[in-house]
């Protein structure tokens, strides 16, 4: 019989004991938690001004890696969105702006300086450093975040840890998921299972057809 025992559950960490499941199925949950559960991350950056020592590609790369709080019910993956617009629509993208200037002393621009148009989709932490500005340097940009999957780029991975380990009993595994903060660990788990079910249903339908 399939059984699930929750050993530990918090928004950042979930540990469950899975009994009576196939190893392949259990591992699929682990893998999908890493690569197929969508999260929000900055993907397109329009640099209006950048006089820092860090050049545009690098700033963009760093912005992308900042985990953003994600509400999967409010946003669509761009490929599934019905706006069919290359620029996206409010249902599939979020605009964040950054405008910082160092005047008299060195300024560390951090994730907290990003202003999001959607207060719910903001960086999970305000103290992630983006770039240091020397007096006189300025950075001004528009960043567009969208949903994406870990299989495309690691910035869309919702997990920091995702392990499946064996226990003393056969056919029993311990799954541990730690979140980077964009989604809660239990939600990642739930979404991962949903995702598997969806795939399986699709396959089943195709086999029938």
């Amino acid at each position: 019989m399939v059984s699930i025992d929750v050993i530990e559950s918090s928004p950042s960490r979930l540990r469950v004991r899975l009994g009576g499941v196939d190893r392949a199925y259990a591992n699929a949950i682990r893998r999908i938690a890493i690569s197929e559960v969508p999260t929000m991350a900055i993907d397109d950056v329009v640099i209006l001004e950048n006089s820092s020592v860090m050049f545009d590609e690098l700033v963009s790369h760093r912005l992308g890696l900042i985990p953003l709080k994600t509400d999967l019910d409010r946003y669509n993956l761009p490929e599934d969105c019905d706006c069919k617009n290359a620029l996206g629509c409010p249902k599939c993208r979020v605009l964040l702006v950054l405008d910082a200037e160092a005047t008299d002393r060195i300024l560390t621009v951090s994730s907290g300086d990003l202003i999001s148009e959607d207060p719910e989709s903001k960086p999970v932490s305000d103290i992630i450093p983006i770039v240091k500005l020397a007096p006189g340097q300025k950075i001004k940009l528009e960043a567009y975040a969208r949903l994406g999957k870990g299989s495309e780029h690691a910035k869309w991975q919702p997990t920091s840890v995702s392990t499946l380990i064996e226990t003393a009993k056969p056919d029993e595994f311990e799954l541990c998921i730690e979140s980077v903060g964009s989604l809660s660990a239990p939600e990642i788990f739930a979404r991962a299972i949903q995702r598997i079910q969806q795939s399986l249903t699709e396959i089943a339908a195709q086999i029938k057809a």
Binding site: R30, R31, I34, S35, G150, S151, A154, Q157, S160, V161, S162, T163, I165, C176, E178
Partner: peptide, 12 residues
């Protein structure tokens, strides 16, 4: 190699 295909330790 994708991260999910890589080996992992018990600590993750």
């Amino acid at each position: 190699v994708n991260q999910e295909d890589m080996p992992y330790t018990e600590d993750g």
